[in-house]
């Protein structure tokens, strides 16, 4: 699969968020999108799966513009795992994950859909949660269920918004490792937004670093994660050591605003893409 983004622009009622984003992502691969708060990471993936309409530029998936792909077709191609679903609803875990089968479902497919759901739950090690109500689970369990829903969708491209943010260290490693394995086993393009630079650097095939609404750099972790890039994008002093070939960041200090050239990023955008 190839996602080809050309000159993408996005603005919320005149406040620009993304500006001239041009990048080509080719899979199967495990890609991480990094960048400071409010830089437009979520906006970027919402422009890929058509939840937001760009104000300029084009997004093509395998040569077809996303504006020409119907919502239902899109759901078969691109899966989306939202940032922690804190708005809870009273469905059982099975029924929640079963939603992911909707784009593929027909009137008689319930049984085979259930098979897929249970296999995914087993794979993620949450088979024991199957009959529990979704709104009684912990934040970390929510995240796993949302991940299961995305996997049950069996997409060719899987987008994830901070899938590890509510997990403990061990589960963070497990999920990142699983996402990488998934991209290999199922030949899919996995794109994850991440705030943990070390997790991203350790497992990603490629990193896209965003800064001020546009691409700062892309490439293998070693090229993108440097002391210079972290200083310029995040405004932090750091030391980077080599950990079996992947960069490992040791954070030292934040740089005061006066020292950075252009000051901090001023636009803050929440999870839903609304400006706050």
């Amino acid at each position: 699969m190839i996602i080809d983004i050309q000159g993408l622009k996005f603005a919320y009622t005149s406040v620009p968020v993304l500006n001239e984003v041009t990048v080509t992502i080719e899979g199967p691969k495990f890609v991480s999108i990094l960048g400071p708060n409010g830089v437009g990471k979520s906006t970027l993936i919402h422009c890929i799966n058509k939840i937001l309409q760009p104000t300029g530029g084009t997004v093509m998936i395998d040569g077809e513009s996303v504006t020409d792909i119907t919502v239902k077709e899109m759901a078969k191609i691109v899966g989306y795992v939202p940032y922690s679903a804190n708005d809870s609803f009273p469905l059982s875990v099975v029924d929640t994950v079963l939603m992911g089968r909707h784009p593929h479902s027909t009137r008689k497919s319930l049984d085979s859909d259930l098979d897929v759901v249970y296999e995914v739950l087993d794979k993620l090690g949450i088979l024991d949660l199957a009959m529990r109500p979704f709104n009684e689970l912990s934040a970390g369990q929510h995240q796993k269920v949302m991940l299961a829903r995305g996997l049950a969708q069996e997409p060719r491209i899987l987008l994830l918004d901070e899938p590890t943010s509510n997990l403990d260290v061990r589960h963070q490693l497990d999920v990142a490792k699983m996402l990488k394995a998934l991209s290999r086993e199922k030949d899919i393009l996995v794109i994850m937004i991440c705030h943990d630079i070390n997790i991203a650097a350790k497992y990603s095939d490629e990193i896209i670093l965003l800064s001020r609404g546009t691409i700062y750099s892309t490439g293998v972790p070693k090229e993108v994660i440097t002391e210079k890039s972290l200083r310029e994008v995040y405004g932090v002093k750091s030391v980077i050591i080599d950990d079996d070939g992947s960069p490992h960041v040791i954070l030292k200090d934040s740089i005061s605003e006066a020292e950075t050239e252009e000051g901090p990023v001023r636009i803050a955008v929440d999870r839903e893409g609304q400006i706050i």
């Binding site: 919402h46 799966n49 058509k50 939840i51 919502v71 239902k72 899109m74 759901a75 078969k76 691109v78 899966g79 989306y80 939202p82 679903a85 708005d87 609803f89 469905l91 929640t96 939603m99 992911g100 909707h102 784009p103 969708q153 839903e272």
Partner: peptide, 12 residues
């Protein structure tokens, strides 16, 4: 139940 954005990403 997935919310408007969630529902759209699931083909609704």
């Amino acid at each position: 139940y997935a919310g408007d954005r969630g529902a759209q990403s699931l083909g609704i």
